Amino acid sequence: HEITLHINGRRVKLRFRDEKAAEILKEAAKKGLDEEELKKLAEELWR
């Protein structure tokens, strides 16, 4: 699955395995994680 989040006016595509991962990524984006941090988090969730 993929999700596209808008971060600092940019579109960031993240891959994720399940809905739980999608929710975690959305929450992290709301908390203000930047693009690099979100990509790292997405990679961690993928494993």
Rank of each mutant, 00 (worst) to 15 (best):
D34I: 09
R17G: 04
H1M: 13
L14P: 00
G32Y: 04
L33Q: 09
L38G: 00
I3N: 01
G32E: 04
A42G: 05
K31G: 12
R15W: 11
H1R: 11
K26S: 07
L33P: 02
R15C: 05
W46R: 02
T4W: 10
R10D: 04
A29I: 13
A29P: 01
D34F: 07
K26P: 00
E35F: 11
R17K: 12
R11K: 15
L25I: 11
E19V: 10
I24V: 09
D18P: 02
E19W: 13
R15F: 10
K20V: 08
I7W: 03
A28V: 04
K13Y: 06
L14D: 00
L41M: 11
L14E: 00
A21L: 03
T4V: 14
L45E: 01
L25G: 02
R47G: 13
K20L: 09
V12R: 01
T4G: 02
K31V: 09
E19G: 08
I3R: 01
R11A: 15
A21W: 03
K20W: 10
E35N: 05
L41K: 03
K31P: 01
L41I: 07
A22V: 09
I24M: 10
A22G: 13
D18C: 05
A28K: 05
G32N: 06
L38A: 02
A29H: 13
A28H: 07
G9T: 02
K31Q: 13
D34T: 14
R47C: 11
E44G: 06
T4M: 08
V12K: 01
I24Q: 10
L45M: 09
R15Y: 14
K13G: 03
N8A: 06
D18G: 10
E35Q: 07
N8L: 05
K13T: 15
E37G: 15
D34E: 12
K26D: 04
L25F: 07
G9A: 03
W46Y: 06
R47Y: 14
E36T: 13
F16G: 04
L5T: 01
H6F: 14
E44C: 05
K13M: 08
K13L: 08
V12M: 04
R47I: 15
E19R: 11
A42T: 03
L25N: 00
K40C: 05
K39P: 01
R11Y: 15
G9Y: 00
R15A: 06
E23I: 12
K40W: 10
K26Q: 11
E36K: 13
L25R: 00
E44H: 11
E35A: 11
H1T: 09
K39E: 06
E37L: 10
K40H: 11
L33I: 10
G9H: 04
K13C: 07
E35I: 15
K31R: 14
A28S: 07
K30R: 14
A28E: 06
E2W: 15
A42C: 05
E23A: 13
E35R: 06
R17P: 05
K13N: 08
L45D: 01
K39H: 11
G32M: 06
A42F: 03
E35V: 14
W46T: 02
E37C: 14
K30S: 14
E2M: 13
E23C: 06
K30D: 11
I7P: 02
T4H: 08
E37S: 15
L5G: 00
I3S: 01
L14K: 00
L5D: 00
D18N: 11
E37H: 12
E35L: 12
K40N: 12
K39M: 12
L45V: 03
L41V: 04
N8V: 03
K30Q: 12
L5M: 07
L5V: 09
E23D: 11
W46E: 03
R11S: 14
K26A: 06
A42W: 05
R17S: 06
N8W: 02
D18L: 03
I7T: 06
F16I: 15
E43A: 09
L25Y: 03
H6A: 07
L45K: 01
W46P: 01
N8T: 03
H6Q: 13
I24S: 06
I24P: 01
W46V: 03
E27R: 09
A28Y: 08
A28I: 04
H1W: 15
E2L: 12
L14F: 10
K20T: 09
A28M: 09
E2H: 14
D34C: 07
H6L: 15
K30G: 10
E44M: 10
K39Q: 11
E36C: 09
H1F: 15
I3H: 02
H1Q: 13
E19D: 11
A28D: 01
K20S: 11
G32V: 04
E2N: 07
A29F: 13
A21I: 03
E27M: 10
K30A: 13
R47E: 14
K40L: 12
A28G: 06
A28W: 08
K20Y: 12
A22Q: 08
K13F: 06
R47V: 15
G32D: 04
L38S: 01
G9S: 03
E19T: 10
R10A: 07
G9R: 02
R11W: 15
